[in-house]
Design a protein around this nucleic acid. Structure first.
Lengths: 236, 236
DNA sequence: ATTAACTTATTGTTATTAAAAAATAAAAAA
DNA sequence: TTTTTTATTTTTTAATAACAATAAGTTAAT
């Protein structure tokens, strides 16, 4: 077998940005790093790519290891490769972006890894270039959520329209008109009324909906234009 | 200095997808590969990341080497890392996406590298997963051009509105209404009328415009909604 | 038991913006 | 003068955003 006559082979890391939503705030799953350098400091969950695994498989492995979850929404975000981004040695990191339903993850696994859900606006300083990675991920979340019905990935299987509205208000950090919001949402045909109502409420109980998964798959890649133009993020 | 106790360090490649526009078709700059394996077959222009260079610097080096151009529009597209994507050895490739003004590149450098401009619909089979990379790049070009005023990067400094329309028609492979097109375009305030006219024309000469680079930079990251919804790409 | 406070839900109205397409005219060359 | 391309204005239609109005479900306070 031919092998390239190049001397420099590089360490390849995978870092995962895991977003969740607790009904009020967008949260980030962060860990206290358990290896040198920078041991004990906050960082994204990461690991090294194994010789026998594809990139997405590596990302899935890391996310499963931390949350106990499989088959969640994951996409590749960007690869970070500045020469000195890792002081230990040259490491190029492929960053993945995941959305999970915060109530469904395995909280024991999370605790075992010294991980915590932290609100976006309260996130601590992270190691290396992880702050920059998170910044890009927030931009990407806003960008994508304006065009594709990505928000459902962050909600439980049964959800109400006011819940979904609060999620979008958290993503864009801005209030939305509830009347236009629900009209626009219902007109997509993506929601199925389950008949039941949200029980834990001290006022009128909201209708619980679930996703029409077939139409969701059909419509996902179509441009959606869900957010009004004025709400669209200014930076990508 | 600490070094990670991980055994597998991996060869990191950079591949560049270079788009151009000849006034009629979107073209791709492809090379005949001059190293094993797959020597003599068509491929994207690529190379290996050097130990002392950032990813974007590596991409810039490769593009300059091939075209003689600097300071062109480049962005990172995606990283491809399937275990067996390169039969010689495990290689992860960071793919970059570049737009150049086809008439400004150094054609001698291009010829020296056995490179050719090839229309999208006439492109040959490429090595490895380069076909998949090009597919993603075309999707990305459509996606991005619908939202950001990216098209100018493919045109010469002075251009006419009909030229720009032909470019968008080539990107989306669909006819556009010239009346709505020019109205929408002029309303962006991105164009400066240079007063002069396109000389090489056998009918009415079109007005030559140039970019208002200050406004271009301001507006670039804003959502643009340039293409009508019906024209927007169906896949990302 | 009634009311107040709050939330959910739906409908309708108005103003604005965008898309589709008709109409017109001017420039240039054959 | 015919043909082709460029350029602009206008009309019609449709979609979207902003916001008014109304009603109904639920709990807690009176």
């Amino acid at each position: 077998m031919y092998r390239y006559p190049v001397t420099s082979r590089i360490l390849l890391a995978i870092d995962c940005i895991i977003f969740g939503f607790d009904g009020k705030d967008i949260k980030l799953l962060l860990v206290k790093r358990n290896l040198e350098p920078e041991m004990g400091k906050w960082s994204l969950m990461g690991g090294f790519l194994r010789e026998d695994e594809d990139l997405e498989v590596g990302a899935g492995r890391i996310i499963f290891y931390l949350t106990g979850l499989k088959n969640i929404y994951v996409e590749q975000l960007e690869t970070f490769g500045k020469v000195n981004r890792d002081p230990a040695e040259r490491t190029v990191s492929v960053v993945f972006f995941a959305l999970i339903q915060i109530d469904e993850h395995d909280s024991e696994a999370v605790r075992n890894h010294n991980a915590s859900w932290i609100s976006l606006d309260q996130r601590p300083e992270l190691i290396f270039d992880h702050n920059e990675m998170v910044g890009r991920a927030i931009e990407h979340l806003r960008y994508k959520a304006a065009l594709h019905p990505i928000g459902f990935e962050l909600l439980p299987e049964l959800f109400t329209i006011p819940q979904l509205q609060k999620l979008y208000e958290a993503i864009y950090n801005t209030p939305l008109d509830r009347r236009n919001f629900s009209r626009k949402l219902l007109s997509t045909g993506l929601l199925i009324d389950t008949g039941s109502k949200n029980s834990n409420s001290t006022t009128k109980k909201a209708t619980l909906y679930k996703l029409d998964t077939i139409r969701y798959k059909e419509k996902f890649h179509a441009f959606w234009n869900f957010m009004p133009d004025s709400m669209k993020p200014v930076k990508i």
